[in-house]
Nucleic acid binder design. Structure first.
Lengths: 369, 369
DNA sequence: TAGATTGTTAATCGATTAACAATC
DNA sequence: TAGATTGTTAATCGATTAACAATC
């Protein structure tokens, strides 16, 4: 049985490693992961002892196999299901935060006592009356519940959840839940978080040598809308069906469309007939090919300022989604669109990118660290 | 310097004690607080050593003075100001969660890069452009920031915040922030919380003797709307101005109004001329008088079924608000309304309560534990 | 090989619990 | 007074870090 805090860190490791994997980093050392996670290398090595797979003294750890093992430990074999109770502002915010983010961990239903909310669909998740709670939880075999109800209702609902088979509760209410031995409770209490922050903000000793670069934050500018037609668009994707569907949509709208079924020929095609826009699949034959092509395109002086629209999808290997916010920041591309993509979305994004002034093309990526 | 986890517990203690204080519990023992907080009595005593005030072996601790001391430690003397960056769904949910809840800790501004959000007012908090961040933080002397932006923007904004003088950040983004020594960061990461819950939900050993009372949760029923006039309403409040303003509002609408300036005479008046509704101030000369009156009314067979509307306000002593959800559950009253109360709200609530069928009157309170 | 890095054990650190004399 | 409960110190527990032989 792995201790609580170790699990915490294993989750962080997995996220970091997934990002590294996307960026093509195939091996890593304990000190690298330690630095990224903000802890010591000894801690990392000790934590990784929880898993079977070993590193080797000279070569360190293999990113991919560690991610696989972490996935096995943290998520197990089957899909995991969760429910949410309390579809207020916070509940809705959490639903939309998770929507589609972790396909392996799915919030199958939301519950609320308010009859005006029941029946609606929030972030792809049906809102049901509390009377359905027991039956729904049992039917799905959900083990996890997210509790976003007022403190006064929390205990009653927690008891019902446990009775229905829930084994872990993330409790956002201020109530201290009483549950049987063996049920996991994670209290996330905003009031206490704020009070703690106030305390430490006041108290922590005036940092020896605080000299952070000041300067106001510059908001990320949204490209302004222009319009232009009869442009040439190059689609690079290894799935022929996908290519053909995009071609149909784009040609119908009056664009000229070129296609390539792999990165190599895509690059070649781009060099011989410079397109006005490139649509690039992020996950081709290996998980990072799309990224390499993006870098190669930016390295070519002639193609540097061609906007790139990157198509993102779920990695079937670990059921983790490419995180535009987190991972996209490093990539020299101008827009991300999720697959499968709705024709409207595709056209709107294409139109926007074609209108982008050249100085707003993202040539370097904007690494955050 | 008090350690991290101790501060955590001190915050919980304060909340529990405030609730006890409202319920008239003037003294307590370490084992009582321990049980309520779910820890050991030794832990409680050790934690309370952080404060000057002492308990006495025979009488235990004085609730009020401990709350005062905790407030002094946790919040300090002056008001504390915080800002929020990222007015998305989560940011808005958090804003409305905190709105008015802790008058001593105020979120003075929200920031967002989206020009369509800037200029609006969210939960009594103006939304400003990111370009105003530095100046606003400095002007208010805010020490705490709540960060609810995407991971890709988090580091940049954190740096700007620290540059502007922020000393503590509650970070809801998945990014691991790099900040100078001495800055407090609290990471609240929903993805990791969910993964942890999934892990422990799957893993924790099948609880020895799980036999929680099953039974579906019964949603709290909302009183149905009826209508009735020429009813007699008794107002009990020690503030003459307040009484007169309510009287004006209610009489104008056609109700008959009786008044009483303290609990004692209120009870007497209720007994001599049975009203159809009682409006009761929760905080009169001592902080719990309103509560005692409520219990006394329910103890009187003749008055038991008269609905009670309780007026709530902020406790000036500790700047904590009476928490309807948490504390109200114990009280045998039928509605709570915050002071100062808008005429419309007052009338609507009065109308609803007067229409309440007798079997829905809350005679006993509904304790949650 | 020599140097670097691992897995793992031992030492340290911090936090919780137990114990108990002081005392109301 | 006698019993119960405190404040506080010592013992225990758990988690982190350091150290180092094994080894790629």
């Amino acid at each position: 049985m792995i201790p609580h805090k170790t699990i915490d860190r294993l989750c962080s490791y997995r996220r970091i490693l997934f990002r590294w994997h996307l960026r093509g980093k195939e091996r890593f050392h304990s000190y690298e992961l330690a630095q990224e996670a903000g802890i010591t290398a000894a801690q990392v090595r000790r934590d990784l002892m929880s898993l079977k797979n070993i590193g080797t003294p000279r070569n360190g750890y293999a990113t991919a196999s560690i991610i696989t093992e972490l996935g096995a430990i943290l998520e197990g074999a089957e899909d995991q299901k969760a429910v949410l109770v309390g579809a207020g502002k916070l509940g809705k915010a959490i639903l939309s935060y998770f929507a589609g983010r972790r396909p392996n961990i799915r919030i199958v239903a939301a519950f609320d006592s308010d009859p005006t909310k029941v029946g609606s669909v929030l972030a792809a998740c049906p809102c049901l009356p509390l009377t359905d709670l027991d039956e729904t939880v049992r039917r799905h075999g959900a083990l996890v519940a997210i509790l976003t109800v007022p403190g006064s209702a929390a205990q009653e609902i927690a008891t019902a959840l446990v009775g229905a088979g829930i084994r872990a509760i993330i409790n956002f209410s201020p109530a201290k839940l009483k549950v049987p031995e063996g049920i996991y409770i994670d209290d996330i209490d905003f009031s206490i978080a704020l009070e703690k922050a106030v305390y430490f903000g006041r108290t922590l000793k005036d940092g020896t040598g605080i000299a952070p670069s000041s300067g106001p934050a510059t908001p990320i500018s949204e490209g302004s809308m222009h319009g232009a037609l009869t442009k040439r668009i190059l689609c690079i994707d290894d799935d022929l069906d996908v290519i053909e569907s995009y071609r149909a949509i784009l040609e119908q709208t009056g664009y000229e469309v070129a296609v390539a079924l792999d990165g190599e020929s895509g690059l070649e095609e781009a060099r011989s007939h410079k397109p006005d826009l490139i649509i690039l699949d992020v996950m081709m034959k290996d998980a990072t090919e799309g990224f390499h092509i993006a870098y190669a395109l930016r390295a070519d002086a002639a193609l540097r300022e061609v906007p790139i629209l990157m198509l993102t999808a779920i990695s079937s290997e670990w059921n983790m989604k490419f995180d535009k916010d987190q991972d996209g920041a490093y990539l020299p591309v101008d827009a991300f669109v999720d697959k499968p993509v709705a024709p409207d979305t595709l056209l709107a994004t294409v139109k926007r990118l074609l209108g982008l002034p050249r100085e707003q093309i993202n040539i370097m990526g904007s690494p955050q660290s």
